[in-house]
């Protein structure tokens, strides 16, 4: 039971942050593609801007890993 809750918590940590990242990327991506259509030289900056919210899911992954490593090993 406890192991299941730990797994659920780890999954939620990654899953919710992935949802947040996806939401942010959708908004940024739409705007960035509009900008690239007008100015193709902005492609690099567009990739950069789209990639920035990924830090959220990486931090979610870090939290998830900590949950598994610190609680799952007990």
């Amino acid at each position: 039971m406890e192991l299941g809750l730990i797994a659920l918590a780890a999954g939620l940590a990654v899953g919710l942050s992935a949802l947040a990242t996806g939401y942010a990327q959708a908004r940024i991506g739409a705007a960035a593609m509009g900008a690239v259509a007008e100015k193709p030289e902005l492609t690099g900056r567009a990739i950069l801007l789209v990639a920035i919210p990924e830090t959220l899911v990486i931090l979610g992954f870090a939290v998830s890993a900590m949950i598994i490593l610190l609680l799952g090993g007990k």
Binding site: E54, T55, I58, L59, F61, A62, A65
Partner: peptide, 12 residues
Amino acid sequence: LGNVLSYLRLAA
């Protein structure tokens, strides 16, 4: 600090 943590994506 966030920049360093961001490299966790290599593992992920």
